[in-house]
Amino acid sequence: MSRLNAYALTWRLPIIIWQILFFLGPLLFMIAMSFFLVKNYRMIEAFEFKNWDKMLSRGYVWDSYWLTLGMAALSTAIASLVAFPAAFFLAFKSSENLRRWAIFLLIIPFFTSYLVRTFSWYVILAESGVINALIGNIGLGPYTMLNTKFGTIVGYLTLTLPLVVILQTVSLANVDKTLIQAAQNLGCSPWRTIRAVIIPAAKAGLIVAALFCFILSFGDFVAPYYLGGSKPPTLPILIIDTTKSGQQWPRAAVVAVMMMVTLFTIAFASIILAYRKRASK
């Protein structure tokens, strides 16, 4: 079957050429660029560790690094926990019809602009915004929600929550129903069924949902910039600032490579965790 002919190559080659030129090429060049030098606002191809020395020895880079990592982890934890009851309901308790509608509705946000939604939150959360006006009526507030970590998390969840609910629902719905019945017949309480049967059975899907949430939050610059106030900036904001205003592409590349290494490590660890066979007891 795998004899090479013109027909087979016609279908196989285009994407290889395209991705090498425009996907692998850019990424490899960016890694190389992190060793380039900038002189008089011009980039010079070189192989020096100057950018790495400079960036890794700066306190503010590490502040940004830990902030981004921490916020993305927090967003992942919150999204996973908040989504779970909803996904549980959709997978086990709701009618087929309701589930289909719910998933359809959760896809709608993907067809709306994330920027516009963030802008909308900006107005809703502002000091004189909708929420403070509403709770002001009952004599509370005003609370400062913009330019706080709370604001950033609201933004992250706007981006990730629909996806996490969908992925969790799909993975829970695929759990073998007879397993759950068996557990109940054997006298397992509902909580214990969830903890000892359902979650382990749906583990891979739940972890993949969390991983997507982490990747999206880690790389998002809109929420921390517009809702979180960007003090200190997260790594994506650092990349933008360094590229756009500083013209320091090589230093931005250092930050980007740091982000990629972090993401690969976390993705690799999660996938091992997701597909590891459970230790036999």
């Binding site: 960016m30 790389g219 994506p236």
Partner: peptide, 14 residues
Amino acid sequence: TIPLIIMALAMLAW
């Protein structure tokens, strides 16, 4: 799976 901001910088440079 790669954050858009990283692709953005890499593609701009390349």
